[in-house]
Design a protein around this nucleic acid. Structure first.
Lengths: 172, 172
DNA sequence: TTAAACCAGTTGCAAAAAGCAAGTGGTTGA
DNA sequence: TCAACCACTTGCTTTTTGCAACTGGTTTAA
C-alpha cells in the first residue's frame, strides 16, 4: 500500500482515506443498516456494489483502522465486520452530508427520512447515536435508561416505507 | 454525462457528486485559499493536481452547479471561478472533515490550524464564514460591522507559518 | 448421506479514470 | 517585438473500476 500522503491538510487526509465512491457507502450500510456480513453488504446494497470492490474496500478499511473483522462463532466461514471509534466518529460527517444531499440533490423520501431525523436532532442526537454504536460495535456497556436512536431511525424509515406501500396499493 | 444515479440516498448522492480524490480539494482551495483562476489553483496546489484533471474537475463542477465561471474583465484569457450557494453550504462538511482528520490522521500543524479554528468556533462561526463567502462569491452586500472570519483564518495560518519559519531559522 | 443452498471471497478481462509530460493558440506588458 | 503569461489540450501509460463467472469450503434439510 501507499504510505505517503499528498499533504498534511486534514481535509486532504480525510479525502485520501474516504474519498472514493464506495468506502463511505460500505460504512453507511454497516452503521445505519447494521449489516455485519459480506453477503448482507453485497445483496442488500442499494447501489449495487460488485463483490470484488466490496472485498477490496473491506480489506482496505480494516487495514486503515476504520473497520475491524472477527470470525462469527456460529458459522466457520462468516466474518463479522464492526465499526471502530474512528468510523463511529464519522457520524457528524454523515449527518452533514445527508443534510447537504437533502437540500441540493434529488433524494427519495424513503432513503432520506433518516437523514432528516439526524439533521433535526442535531449534535445531541449524534452523540446519543455514537454511544449506541459503541455498544453495538465496541462491546461498550449499555445504558438501559436511554431509548435507542438506532431503533428510532429504523422505525421512521419503516413507517415511510409502509406508508408509501399502502399508497401504492390504494392507487392500483 | 451520466444522468442516472445509483440510488436516492442523500449520502450516496453527495458521494456521486463529490466522492473522488480531487473535487473537494479544488473547492477547498477556492473557498479557503481564495484562488479564483486556473493558474492559481494549479501552481499553488498543495497536493499537486495535474492540469488536465484540474480542467476536467472545474468543468464538471460548473456543470453540476457547484462553481460558476465568468470572464475576467481585466484579462481576455482569464476566467474567474466562484463558489455557488451549493458549494458555500459545504462549509459544515469541510468543518467536520477537518475535525475528523485532525483527530485521526497525521496532519501538519500549519495546514490544520484553520480546521482547528473552524472546529472551535462551531456552527455560529460557520454561519459567519458562509455569509462572508456569499459576499465574496455571490456579490452579496457586506455587513461592515462584522469582522472577517476569512481574515481570521488567514491570520492564524500565517502566524503558524511565521512562527515555524522563525523556529527553523533559530535552529540553523 | 448426499445434494442444494449458502459463505466469503477470487479471477480474468474490458472499460474508464488518473497521472505525466509536452504542446497549443492566443494575450499582455516591457 | 519578444518574453512571460494564460487556460487549457493532446498523447501516452498506469491504475482503478466494473462485470461475470468461478472457487473451495460449510451448513442445512431431505
Amino acid at each position: 500500500m501507499n504510505d505517503t500522503y499528498r499533504s498534511g491538510c486534514p481535509i486532504n487526509l480525510t479525502l485520501e482515506v474516504l474519498g472514493d465512491r464506495w468506502s463511505l457507502i460500505v460504512i453507511r450500510d454497516i452503521m445505519f443498516g447494521n449489516r455485519r456480513h459480506f453477503r448482507e453488504l453485497l445483496q442488500n446494497s442499494e447501489e449495487g456494489i460488485a463483490s470484488n470492490i466490496l472485498a477490496d474496500r473491506l480489506k482496505r478499511l480494516v487495514e486503515r483502522g476504520l473497520l475491524s473483522r472477527e470470525d462469527d462463532p456460529s458459522h466457520k466461514q462468516k466474518g463479522i465486520y464492526s465499526l471502530t471509534e474512528m468510523s463511529i466518529r464519522l457520524v457528524p460527517i454523515f449527518a452533514e452530508m445527508g443534510a447537504w444531499g437533502r437540500r441540493f440533490m434529488p433524494v427519495s423520501e424513503e432513503l432520506s427520512i433518516r437523514a432528516q431525523l439526524l439533521e433535526e436532532g442535531g449534535r445531541p442526537l449524534w452523540e446519543d447515536f455514537m454511544d449506541e454504536l459503541r455498544v453495538l460495535h465496541l462491546h461498550a456497556p449499555r445504558d438501559p435508561a436511554k431509548p435507542s436512536v438506532f431503533d428510532r431511525l429504523r422505525a421512521a424509515y419503516l413507517e415511510v416505507v409502509a406508508r408509501n406501500a399502502a399508497a401504492a396499493d390504494a392507487a392500483e
